[in-house]
């Protein structure tokens, strides 16, 4: 159950690509990456979740952190989340602040 997170920043879009399982033991890495993305001055944070197999509340925490850190003018999108992952995001009500976009 490996976890991998990659950050790309080009122009005004920061893209974080997630692979594997995001739980309390891997959330720290994601959190750090979100911090870097937030510091980059992007207007958009795109989280590619096509290969994210699992998301727990520990991962959601970092999404709140992203929202707090990036300010109101920044759009955050989670792209290609699987149904259970998208369900978790919706259940927590995060879809009010974060766009769930099909891949």
């Amino acid at each position: 159950m490996a976890f991998d997170v990659r950050l790309r920043i080009n122009d005004k879009v920061a893209t974080i690509e997630l692979k594997g399982e995001l739980d309390a033991s891997t959330a720290g890495e994601f959190h750090e990456t979100v911090g870097k993305a937030a510091g980059a001055g992007a207007v958009e944070l795109v989280i590619r979740a096509e290969q994210l197999g699992y998301l727990s509340s520990a991962g959601l925490r970092s999404l709140v952190f992203a929202r707090q850190k990036m300010g109101d003018g920044v759009r955050i999108a989670v792209v290609g989340a699987s149904e259970p992952v998208a369900r978790t995001i919706r259940l927590a009500g995060f879809d009010h602040s974060i766009d769930l976009v099909d891949a």
Partner: peptide, 9 residues
């Protein structure tokens, strides 16, 4: 339960 009316941040 999540407070849906409160902004995420």
């Amino acid at each position: 339960a999540p407070q849906l009316d409160v902004p995420l941040e």
